[in-house]
Simulated assay, not measured.
Amino acid sequence: MLVFRTGQLGDTLVALPAIHALKARHRGDKLILLTDKHPDKSYVSSWDILGPTGWFEEVIFYEPGPLYWLNLKAVLATISSIRRIRAGVAYILAPERNAWQLFRDRFFFRIVAGVRECHSRGAGGSPTRRRNRPLPHVKPEWRVLREVIPYSESEHFDLKPLIPQSELDSANELMMRLMDNEATRFVALGPGSKMPSKIWPEERYISLLRRLTKAFENTKFIVLGGKEDKTIGDRISAAAGTSIHNLAGSVSVMGSAAILTRCNAYIGNDTGTMHLAAMVGVPCIALFSARDFPDRWRPYGDNHTILRREVDCEGCMLEVCNKENNRCLREISVDDTISAIAPLLSASH
């Protein structure tokens, strides 16, 4: 059985409930992953997440690009690899597709690559954007992908059993060193993002943390993320006090997951770290820009608070907001965020 999924950390994490369900549905079948590879990039790939799960017996890589379909040698190599495994079923867990892309995918897998049966999301999915009206809410991406899988008894996903014991042991040792006493609580922070348009202002994180450390004395804050988030984590921890510890870029993805299992909450941007927190059952206070439809990248589960503001330019899909300077995120105040996180910290006191 072939599973097609591409993307980085967040893209892969939202596909985990679907892959977990199809693994349960096809118990005993051999799973093979088809995914992208970017040798010139350092970010977390799908295989970095899915490989350690042990769910897949093999992986087929291809190197995408604007001219991929014109690279006959590369396309033929991918076709040959798929035909070699003689997959009877393919699950196409791809991002949103228009009608042409959906036809192209199915034609490629069924006619060209010889896969007898294909399951995928339908074409489109995003409502029509209407001028001068707020964007409508859409299904979360994790749910859309989960619905690609025909019914199985596996309806709930929990990442915790997949975290290596060595990572859990290391996280436990770290937390023991950081604890002041048995009442110490931990909150994970995700202040970074590869997209500047998703980042809540740094000075607000600093203000937020200064106020929270005064209001909740037994609380420690841990910055998580990739190497690209280390710099902002250093600045925030230097400015906000000794209760903030920056681990961004210094622990693996599964190491971060292990640390998150010891946290009472997550506060931060719409990032892979947010999705990782949700996958281990941590309540998220998620600070969303309005660049996309509401709820599309909502974290997995139901115990989360989404802070998002409607603005007249919402749905822009910009990666860098030069004109409005992230106005949608700047309209989320420090008070808003404290109101969202305070009940979680009070309850865990």
Rank of each mutant, 00 (worst) to 15 (best):
T6M: 07
T6D: 10
Q8P: 11
L13K: 05
P17L: 07
I19C: 07
A21N: 08
L22D: 09
D29W: 01
I32C: 08
L33P: 15
D36I: 06
K37T: 14
H38C: 14
H38M: 12
P39L: 03
P39A: 05
S42D: 14
Y43E: 15
V44Y: 02
E57K: 07
E58D: 13
E58V: 01
I60L: 08
E63N: 09
P64I: 02
W69I: 05
N71D: 15
K73N: 13
A77Y: 06
I82V: 12
I82W: 01
I82E: 03
R83T: 09
R83K: 15
V89G: 10
P95H: 05
E96V: 14
A99G: 11
D105V: 01
R106C: 05
F107S: 11
F108T: 04
F108P: 05
V112F: 02
V115D: 07
R121Q: 15
R121E: 15
G124F: 09
G125R: 10
T128M: 05
P136V: 10
H137F: 13
K139P: 04
P140G: 03
L145D: 11
R146P: 09
I149F: 06
P150A: 04
S152T: 15
S154N: 12
H156Q: 13
F157Y: 12
D158N: 12
K160L: 06
K160I: 11
P161E: 00
L162H: 10
Q165P: 00
S166R: 06
D169L: 08
S170G: 00
R177F: 00
L178C: 01
N181I: 05
P191S: 05
K194T: 14
M195W: 14
P196K: 04
S197F: 04
P201T: 09
P201M: 00
I206V: 15
L209K: 12
R210W: 07
T213H: 11
A215N: 13
I222M: 00
G225Y: 00
I232P: 01
R235N: 08
A240V: 02
T242D: 13
S243D: 08
L247H: 01
G249A: 01
M254N: 09
G255N: 02
A258T: 08
L260Y: 07
C263N: 09
N264Q: 14
I267W: 04
G268H: 04
G268A: 09
M274W: 09
M279V: 07
G281A: 06
V282C: 08
I285K: 03
I285D: 10
Y300I: 03
G301I: 01
E310G: 08
C321E: 06
N322D: 12
K323G: 07
N325W: 00
N326D: 09
L329Q: 09
R330I: 06
I338G: 13
A340S: 12
I341H: 08
I341L: 06
I341R: 05
A342S: 13
L344T: 07
L345M: 06
A347C: 06
